[in-house]
Design a protein around this nucleic acid. Structure first.
Lengths: 206, 206
DNA sequence: GTCAAATATGAGCGATCGCTCACGTCAAGA
DNA sequence: TCTTGACGTGAGCGATCGCTCATATTTGAC
């Protein structure tokens, strides 16, 4: 079933129709992944759903993993843009408002395509996109780190770099959790309030 | 490849040799999962690695998903025991020490079989073990909630139930992150210190 | 020792997989 | 208009999958 290694060079889309086909495959893969998960998706079905031949699919992708990797690239780029825009804007705000707006923006970003986000998130290790995600994490951490150092009178943590790491990972996790928690017992605003509270109390010390 | 639904009743191991076979399959599946991941594992290879016939495997398991589900059950039970023991012990300690000992215990528990833990963690949604994990999360949250209510003079959060939820999810996420962070730039003790600091500042307010 | 139930085996079936390749179609420069 | 290369097609190959079933072996109650 599985080839030892995908070696053959794939074509890069040059004409418009080729780019459309490329995107159609990605869109179909996204739907297929959300519907059936990674394991039960297949290149044959993805091609069928995209309305293209299986041969065409293989002209642009090396296989299922490559498709998912490309999908993660696209999705990650979009999420990164949203989060970093929020972070940039936050730089000019008072600390408490900065944290709140950023958290709210991240929550909003995760509410766009939550199911796709979840499936892709699970597949990151398998398709060799750990570096890409780690890199984005590092960029985000660096931005947070810079902002922390820019507000020494309020941010009293001992090690801003460690704090930046922990805050980024913590907010990421809590936002993912919030998808479950919201609409269950607590409102979106209430949960965001609390996350902001956690971060603020940590950053501004006792 | 995939049957519509696994219907046939499976045998439950009654004799000792059957229980040994059952465990051998689980152990082999754990190794196979760590080595190849879920997708590239197969029942045939798991049976071969376990040194049992494929037919025997199918007498006790409905298929790959059922094996992984059983493995998650076993692993979850072990982790739960470790964490809950730590939580019980913590009840008699001062708050700061209680938090520290608990976090340290959870970090230690995650250091036992980190790769297996990671793979299983990723497969929880697919094999229908969400309820089991959620249930464990709820139990843990309930225990934390109880302990928070038991220390009203120190724990100043508005909503102890919401706080318990967030703390449990947050600590879980940070411990998982700590696997990457430790041995990179910060020591285990340093990271634990910081996690404890986050939790303490949140719980005891400004 | 006898025998029924429990346990163990593995060849192999049918399904599906990933993927190729020989071949047709389209677009654009000459 | 002709030519060339990019683009698109889908039947089908070889591999592997999940899983069954006819058969053999072991166990334990009697």
């Amino acid at each position: 079933m599985t080839k030892a290694a995908a070696v053959k060079r794939r074509r890069a889309p040059r004409q418009e129709r080729a780019r459309e086909l490329f995107d159609a495959v990605l869109d179909a893969a996204a739907k297929e992944l959300v519907k059936s998960g990674y394991v039960h998706s297949s290149t044959n079905r993805i091609a069928a759903r995209a309305g293209v031949s299986i041969g065409s699919l293989y002209q642009y992708f090396e296989g299922k993993e490559a498709i998912v990797a490309a999908l993660i690239d696209r999705h990650t780029t979009e999420m990164k843009a949203l989060c970093h825009t929020a972070l940039m804007r936050a730089a000019t705000l008072p600390l408490d408002r900065a944290v709140r707006e950023t958290v709210a923006a991240i929550v909003a970003a995760h509410a766009i395509e939550p199911k796709l986000h979840k499936v892709l998130h699970e597949q990151v290790p398998r398709v060799g996109k750990l570096r890409k995600i780690d890199q984005m994490h590092e960029e985000t951490t660096a931005m947070v780190h810079a902002q922390l150092r820019m507000r020494p009178e309020q941010v009293t943590v001992q090690d801003p770099e460690l704090a930046a790491n922990l805050v980024v990972r913590m907010v990421d996790a809590l936002v993912h959790s919030s998808v479950d928690m919201i609409s269950e017992k607590w409102s979106k605003e209430r949960v965001i309030d609390e996350i902001v509270g956690i971060v603020m109390r940590y950053l501004t010390g006792n």
